[in-house]
Computed example of a mutant assay.
Amino acid sequence: MRSIRIKGSMMIAVLMAIFLAIGCAATKKITQDILGEGKALKKKIAFLPIVNEAGYGGKDFQASARIHLNTFLKRFCDGLYIVDSQKTRNLLKEVPRLPSGQLDNLALAKLGRSLGLNVVLEESLSGIKCLAEKRGIWGFRDTCMLAQLCVCVRAYDIETGAILFDEVVQGEVEVSEDDWHNLKKRSGYRKEIADRLLAKTTDGICKRICELLGDEPWEGYITSCSENTFTLSAGKDVGLAIGDVLEVFGTSEPIKGSAGQIYLVPGPKIGEIRITKVHRDRAEAIRILGSDLQKSSHVKLKP
């Protein structure tokens, strides 16, 4: 017992030294390798077309918002895989809306499963406000001319069709008096100011997404079945490998929302499958145990 305690203490000391030398993210990966924790598969995320409600900057502003979102997520969220092909954009653009005006979450969930997505993000740029605030030490305060951008962000869970979060993220930057007046008059588009505002808001959005999805396990979907072979809409892109064993979960009765939405409800475990072939964005598996696995809600990596 004494030797086990000594080894445990030495291990902690080694991991602390690694942490101090190279930082948290790398230490977490090395810790998993040393202690033999299960591997973490990446979650797949895609974006609905960005809505520019105020019209400021037109398509240029929308394109910049998409670039910022891609860049920040790739930089700060290691556990995500971004699906942003032109085909995916076109498919998401066609997701219908309900008579209530809300997105058809069931249609989105069905499309998302076929693409192997875990989350779909919707962004709406609500416009730029011009603010003037007194800032600085009391008695020496100056008026600061500020531009503020509000972004409405909504994240949809593909497994259930539910909204994971629906928030407004704000960011503000200081601008010159001339730029402030031009913004107030909606005179022209200043890309430099727009990029600074997008950097502020996107940072907050990405932190929220990373916090929300960071510790959540990957979930995948069976998209087709032929005899004893099952096809999944995820592969090397999320980290699946030949030999991986996945638990398969059934379905329960869907729940109808007040505005016409239909929410999917996962059921209990009904079987297991083993990966036999892995492609870029899909994989094939065979049944280990269970029946009617094609009627599943989702699959998870077996611990």
Rank of each mutant, 00 (worst) to 15 (best):
L91K: 14
D84H: 10
I82A: 07
A132I: 15
F72N: 00
I137N: 12
S100Y: 12
R75M: 00
K129Y: 11
S64T: 07
D78F: 03
L146M: 13
L69D: 00
I67A: 00
D78P: 03
L111T: 14
E122D: 13
F76G: 01
R66S: 00
A65T: 01
G112Y: 04
E133T: 10
S100V: 02
L125N: 04
C77M: 05
L73H: 00
N90D: 09
E122I: 04
S124E: 15
V95I: 15
S114P: 04
C144Q: 09
D60C: 08
V120C: 10
S85D: 07
K87P: 05
E133H: 11
G57Q: 03
L117Q: 09
F76M: 08
Y81G: 07
R113W: 09
G79N: 14
K129I: 14
E94R: 14
G139C: 06
G136W: 07
K74V: 01
Q62S: 01
G57R: 02
G112R: 10
K74G: 03
L98V: 12
G136K: 01
D84C: 03
G127H: 03
C130I: 14
N118R: 04
L131N: 13
A132C: 13
K110A: 12
A107P: 01
N118V: 07
N90R: 10
G112L: 10
D104M: 03
L108M: 12
I128F: 13
I128L: 09
A109L: 06
E94F: 15
P99R: 00
T143P: 11
T88E: 11
A109S: 15
G55I: 10
R75V: 01
Q102S: 09
L117R: 05
G116V: 03
K110Q: 15
W138L: 04
G112M: 11
G79F: 11
E122R: 12
K110D: 12
V95Q: 06
I82W: 07
F76R: 02
G57T: 05
I137K: 03
L115Y: 12
L146W: 08
L117I: 06
L69T: 00
R141G: 13
